[in-house]
Structure formats: C-alpha cells, structure tokens
Write a protein that binds this DNA or RNA. Structure first.
Lengths: 339, 339
DNA sequence: TTGAAAGCGCTAACAG
DNA sequence: CTGTTAGCGCTTTCAA
C-alpha cells in the first residue's frame, strides 16, 4: 500500500525513521559534512523507504544558489543553434546543473525574461543569443551572477567568453576560395547585423581588397535559407560576375546554392563556386555537398559550460576567452585544389 | 553610487523604505490579497528604487510550487523537435512559467534527470521524448505533478496528451500516393521503433494491403537522414520495384531522396515518387521540394502548453487528448494530381 | 486594510 | 560525530 495522497516526506520524517536528527540527514545526503558510515547507511535506507527527495528550493534558499543555470538562445529552430543548445544542456545536466531555457525572439521581450530568470537565484547564465541587450548582462554582473558569452561582441562588459576568431575566419574563407581558383569574389553580408556573421563577411571583404581583388557585396536581409534565395535574385539582378562567393552562413549558402542551380541553372563548381560557414548537418547532405568552414557548435557549448563551472566554483579567477576551433571542409561546391 | 557588493534587498528592506510591513509588500507584489492603492504605489516605488526582486525560491518553497516546468525532449538537434521545443519554451515563458530543458539521449540517464527535476517542485512537465520510461511518468503522477505527453503511447498512464491520428496519417499517405498514380508501394519503417513513426508506417502498410496492393517494407535502423540514405541502398539491393514510397519521416525521405537521385540517378517524380512526413523546413527547400504531410510542430507544442496550464489550474478536470492537425503538402516528388 | 507570527524544508554554525 | 539552534525570504492565516 503506497502512500497515495500523503504529503511529501521531509528530512524530518527521514530523521525520525532513521533515529537521527534532521541535520544528520542533511549531512548524509548533501555529501558535505562528516557522518559515520552507520548513520549514512541508515539515512539512505530510510530515505529510500520513504521515497524522500531533497527539496532543492529549500536548499537553494539556504545556499543562495539554486543549481539552476539560464541558457539564453535565439533562433533555436536553426540547425546550428539547436545542436549547440542540445550540447550545452546535456553538459550542464551532466555537471549537476539544471538549464532553464530562455528563447529570445526580438529583444523587446528578452530583457523581461532574463529578469525573471534572476528571480530564481540562478547559479549562472550562458548567453548564445545574437543580441541580448548589454544592460541585461550588466544587471547580471551587478547581482554577481556569472555569465558566459558565446560569440558576443568584444566590447561587452568583463565576462568569460567563447568566440571564434573573426579575422582568421575571413582569411580562411578567402584562402579556400582563392586556392580553388576563384578570380572574382562576392560575399553575402546580411543587413541585419550580427557580431560574428557580419564580422567574418567584412573580414573576407578586407582580405579580398588587400589582395587587390575587391569583393562585390550582396546584402540580403537576414541569415537564413530564404535570405540566401533572395541573395541569388539580388546577385542576378546586379549582373554580378563573381565566380566565387562566400556566404557568411551555411543557411545562406544553401539558399543561394538552390537559387543559383535550381532557379538560374548554374552548375557548381564549374559556373560558380560557393563557400558556406558553420558546417551544419544539411551542408553535408548528398544533394547539397556544400564546401564550408566548420565551427564546432558542440565544442563551443562545452567550452562555455566548462568556463561557467570554473567561474561558479571560483568567482575571482581571471576572465577567460576561449576560441572555437575552425576547420576547412572541402566538398563539391568548390573546385578540387590541384596539388 | 549604486550598491556594489551589498546583499540583495529583501522584502524587508522594501517594507522599511515604504513604511509598511513585509506582508504588505508581499501582498502588493504577488497580486493576491487586497492592498490599498496608496500602499501599493509606495511599495512598487520602493521596490523599484532598491532594485528589489522577489526570490522565487522562497516563494516556491512557501507555495509548494515553483513556476518551473520540465520540458523533456530527445533528439533536439532534429529540425522537427527543435522547432517544437522552441515554441513550447516560448509559450511557457509567455504564460509565466520557466522551462527547464531536459535533453534525453538514451533512456539510461533520463530517469535520473527527471528525478532531479522533481526535486525542484516543478509545477508540471511536458514530455516530447520518444521514449521516457513509463515508471517515471508514474512517479510524477504519484507526486501529483501534472504531465502532458506529446505523441506518446496510448497505453500510458492517465495523463493529458497531444497526439496525431496515426490511422488517418497512414491513410492520408496512401491516398496521396495512390492519387498521384502510385502502383507499387513501399514504406520505410525504422527498426528502432517509435510510437508515431512506426505507427504510421504500419498504418500505411495496412491501407496498401486492404487495397490489394501490399507494400514492400524497407527497414533502415533509425529515422534520420543517414538512415534514409541507407534505405536507398537497401531499396536497390533488394531490387525493389516500387514506384511510390512513403518515408515515415521527412529526414528519412530526404536521405532516401538524395540516395535515389544523386547516388542512383533516379528522376523524381518520373522514375519514383517519394512522400515524407512532418514538413520540416528543409522539405520545402528548392533543391528538395519534397511532397509530405505536415504535422504542425508549433501547434502541437501550443496545445501541450495549454493543456498543462489548464491542469495546473484545475487538477481535477477530466483528462484530455488533443489531436495534432495534419495536412497534405503537394510538392515536386509526387506527380500532380490530374483533376 | 494592515501588522504580527507561524511556518515552507533545508543547511550551517556551534556546542556537546 | 551528532544534536541544537538559527535563520534563508517569502506567504498566509489570524487578529486588530
């Protein structure tokens, strides 16, 4: 006969059953504090029997720290972000934290949501959003809530961060396209600016310029598939003659790719070469086979979680900035390099 | 001069500044309880001034209810699931709850994670995972934590649920392919069983059988792109002569599609017709243009959140089972229906 | 309407 | 090593 509608057992009940004091129960179950092997066993046993579970709200209230971690992410339905969030959540969970997911759509609402997060005495926050207002980050610092920023602007307040090397990204893109025989370059640089996306597009353009081969700039609105499609129209309308285009995002690249080959009958890489960025799963699909630059979403997420944990454990350590590794991925939308 | 390292202000501080008692602060800020307009204003004012925020852990401890909601999801890096989780999180947030994201990978660890969730006195739980162990759901019921199941097995314990009509799905798939001129049918039915995916594949097969045109069954391992690719190999190896194949998942369909056209040079829909299921974003991409059946992930998520909220507000209402709407999406991998 | 007081369930500091 | 004693910050009766 299991206790149906009984109230949840408290540490007090466990204590009574195990014939010890509540504090002994706490010590035995929270791991901290010394307890005799005997008591520990009796407590565990009693807890088991009663189906007791520690109330984390009470514990958090006492410790001023809930074990909850805010995970702020925009564009969650995007392949890159989805896998990043997945890994971050998994790692957080593995380390004993509980991720509260805040999905951002338009900054308007976001600050209210993060505000709510702060009410829970979160132990920390990982921000992977494109653009959470800086004031919010400030607010966190004020409340001394550790924050780890993924790919956010450098000028931000002091905080641990994980980001990719923007200059190196633009350079790598240029090198890949150049080595594949590109002569006339173009780049897709969304008008909705984003720190890393805009950054690498500009860096690429700069490299082209420095090499004496200025790139034409196509400006779709956003950085999604549909925008890539739009970019193809823009490209044609402008009678752009580039033979090698760097799309600052895989989604953009895939849209542009489809536009060029399906809508405008271009062959790849013969008529035009396309290079993406991110290496999302779809880039590797047989029908796309997109050459790209891989920035490992999972690695970035894990770095972020590690940094956060380190800071939670030692709030006074110096701020760190981890770099996301990038690697070239040669597939079928760029020519084979003749060695 | 903002208070730098000061402790966080409590309701006590606000009370003092507003010249009222702490309970008045609570009443003014929690909405419940009557307060004079004057006190309310003073409290709000004082709270503002101090940068006070209610401690939800303390509130939750008192109310036995934290406002936290568990969101259990597997395969988050899959387009369908990602957009579902995004919408669920957004809706939850909009209704004042905070979603704790539990990502499931293999049932082994999952039960421990949900266990942890329960320690936070979550107000409810939405389970969209393929297969969280039934005992866990039982445990939730035992602790009277409301649970909403999305597309989980019917034989489950009593709970609110959101699911699609499996029979209707199989039937619709058959009808679409039949009307598009299909003669010989095949179906991809993953060996890793999943309630809805396996269900509609079987339902489709049953429809074929009933119509006197038994379907050939291809059995890839999972339900992802790579498995679809594998299915194409299986299809060819078996010298399958089907001219219309129902892939129980868009990812499967896209993999199968790429395998058939890129690897085996088949044209669509001339040589073979393919129908997917889900209508993920990629299905609509120009290069794929996959005919499919749309099950609206966002709608499902919203239904789930609504059901959960209703149950949290009234634990005694009868259990409900909402149905996810499905609609045919005719694109280029099936023939135009001659009207 | 408002103040007083009693907890919610737990942990940590302090004695024993 | 174990029991005692204070709270953590809030809500909620209960009087006034």
């Amino acid at each position: 006969m299991t206790d149906k509608k009984k109230k949840k057992p408290t540490s007090f009940d466990v204590a009574r059953l195990a014939n010890v004091h509540r504090s002994a129960v706490s010590r035995a179950l929270s791991g901290s504090g010394r307890v005799s092997e005997d008591t520990r066993k009796r407590v565990i046993q009693a807890a088991q029997e009663l189906g007791y579970r520690v109330n984390f709200l009470a514990r958090g209230l006492q410790n001023q720290n809930s074990g909850l971690v805010g995970l702020v992410a925009s564009r969650l339905d995007t392949p890159y972000r989805a896998s990043q969030v997945k890994v971050a959540a998994r790692e957080l969970l593995a380390k004993g934290y509980c991720p509260i997911l805040i999905v951002a759509e338009g900054d308007v609402t976001l600050s209210g949501l993060i505000d709510r997060l702060l009410n829970y005495s979160v132990s920390g926050m990982i921000v992977t959003s494109d653009s959470p207002p800086a004031e919010i980050i400030e607010e966190c610092k004020r409340l001394s809530v550790p924050v780890v920023l993924i790919n956010r602007d450098l000028r931000e307040v002091a905080a641990d961060r994980v980001q990719l090397d923007i200059q190196a990204s633009g350079q790598l893109a240029f090198d890949m396209l150049r080595e594949a025989g590109g002569r006339r370059f173009a780049v897709l640089d969304p008008s909705q600016e984003t720190f890393t996306v805009t950054g690498r597009a500009r860096a690429f353009a700069t490299c082209c310029h420095s090499a004496g081969m200025p790139a034409e700039v196509i400006t779709p609105v956003g950085q999604n598939y549909a925008d890539g499609l739009e970019a193809a129209d823009l490209f044609m309308a402008a009678k752009c003659e580039a033979d090698a285009v760097f799309c600052s995002t895989d989604l953009l690249a895939l849209g542009f790719l489809d536009g060029m080959r399906v809508k405008y009958g271009r062959r790849l890489p013969e008529d035009i070469q396309i290079l993406g960025y991110d290496d999302i799963e779809q880039a590797g699909w047989l029908g796309n086979n997109l050459s790209t630059i891989c920035q490992d979403a999972g690695a970035a997420a894990m770095l972020a979680v590690d940094l956060l944990q380190a800071r939670i454990e030692d709030g006074s350590r110096p701020f760190e900035c981890a770099t996301i590794p990038i690697t070239p991925v040669h597939r079928a939308t760029t020519r084979k390099i003749t060695t």
